[in-house]
Each structure stands twice: as C-alpha cells, then as structure tokens.
Write a protein that binds this DNA or RNA. Sequence first.
DNA 1: AACCATGGCAACCGCGAGAGC
DNA 2: CGCTCTCGCGGTTGCCATGGT
Length: 262
Amino acid sequence: MLSYTNSSKGDAEQLRRGTWSAEEDSLLIHYIARHGEGHWNLLAKRAGLRRTGKSCRLRWLNYLKPDVKHGNLTPQEECLILQLHSKWGNRWSKIAKYLPGRTDNEIKNYWRTRVHKHARHLKIDANSTPFQHVIRCCNWMPRLLPKMESLNQTSQHDQELMTIEQVPVQEQISGSTDIMSTISQVAEYQTSPFSIISNNDDYALAKYCYHDDNIDKNGCYYNLASTSAFEDFPYLVGDCHKPDYNCVNDGFADGLWSMGEQ
DNA sequence: AACCATGGCAACCGCGAGAGC
DNA sequence: CGCTCTCGCGGTTGCCATGGT
C-alpha cells in the first residue's frame, strides 16, 4: 500500500505515505550515518526522501535505529511494563526509557493488543483498579515470574535490562521516585517476593528474582513488607491481597490468561 | 478452496511544549 | 508578545498474516 498526500504545490512535491520501501530505508540510514539525526524536515529533503520529516523520524526511531530490538518481549520486559504502567498509566515514552531497545510504540502496541484483550474478556476496564489486581495478584504476574527465573539462567538479555547507565539522567536524579533506588531498597528486604540477585556499584546492574515460597496456592503474594519506601513501586514488594473478583479465580480466567502464551 | 474474523504491528494524525526569531 | 517551526507524545487507523469455519 502506498499513497500520496495532496499538495497544493503540484504533483512534483507529493509526499509518499504508507509502508517504507527498502530503498527509502537505505536512503534514510545512509543520510543519518553521514549527517546525524535531527531537523527532520530538512533531513527528508536533503536525503531525497519524499516523506514528511515526521514520517522519517518515526521510521528511524521505531524501526531503523541500530539499537532498536526486534522480536517478542521477554517475560522480564512484560513484567516491567505491567509494573510501570500501574505506576504511570499510559506514559509510553516514560515506560520505554526503562526498557532499553524498546520503543514507546512497541510498548503501546503490546498493551493494546495483549493487555486490553484480557481486560475485554474479563469485562473490566484495563485502567481500572480491579484489573490492576488481576494483573498483579491473580494471574499475569505470577505466571511471568517462573518464566523470568528460568530465563535468568541462560539469557544475557536480562543483564541488559534496567542498567543505571541506560536510564536517562533526568530520571536518575528524580529522587524518591527513582525506580532503581526503589528496587535497591527492595533488596534489603529478603522477605520480599522479589529480591536483587546482582547489584554492584560499578556496573549498577539490578536484577530481581522471585521467591516462590512467598506466593500462596491461589497465586496471591503475601503482604511481606509495608513501608513508605515502597509506595512508588508497590508491586515489587507484594502489597497484594486476595482479590474480591471471583471471575479471575475460576477456570475461565485460567484459559484466558494462558491463551496468549506461546 | 474460499471467505471471514481476529491479532499484531507499522505508520499516521492531532495536539501541545519549547525554542528561536 | 506572537508567530513559526521542530520535536515528541499518545491515540488511532489500516494493512497483512494467520487461523477458524
């Protein structure tokens, strides 16, 4: 599919829309390699692309940029998205800053296709408190955590996740709301269902794993720690309670939650 | 085999913030 | 102060692949 925008200045200045061709990608990549990013409208003209600057910027940031990761999200990334979304809501770009190589667009798509789907089936608003409970207490998070553990043993990907260096400076200095500092504080509580399993000052790499014995047979976390230090990141310490929503504890819900798994 | 429904995702759109003049 | 331009964000659209009937 390819279309052109209407232009009052005649056909010669018509702009292309729709899917990018390999040739256009190549033009954009080579131009940026030589001249760098920015000034997208000018870039589009000088690179010989009949695209808007906006379109060029989007294509570069979401697809062509070398550090953009392609492929399925890992359980760690899914878990982090769920946690951060519960904290910030639809602040996709902010959430994306904590997932190196993932774009806001990709995270947004993930949320809309996967998470909203589950909310629809459960007939719950995806942004509602009941759905938050469903995610963190009943099905999703508990299902992701064992996957995270198993992948931790072999994957290097998680070692790239959430390093201090990759978090923008303005986020690092944001005081008590800094996710990393909160995670570090969580490490001090070995009774927490999550704990830091690697964290040194030089590399400042934080990883977290999950203690299976802190989860009850209904898939709910025990309330193991309650301190103001965790308020910014409550789900890491399991402030969770047994849900009141019966719909998520029956077999119907089980089927729903597993249907998206591959 | 043909049709239809659905999911996944790339791309577009509208808006607002900020910078420069 | 107001205008224009650029950039970035969140919401939405529409294409394509896949699976079901």
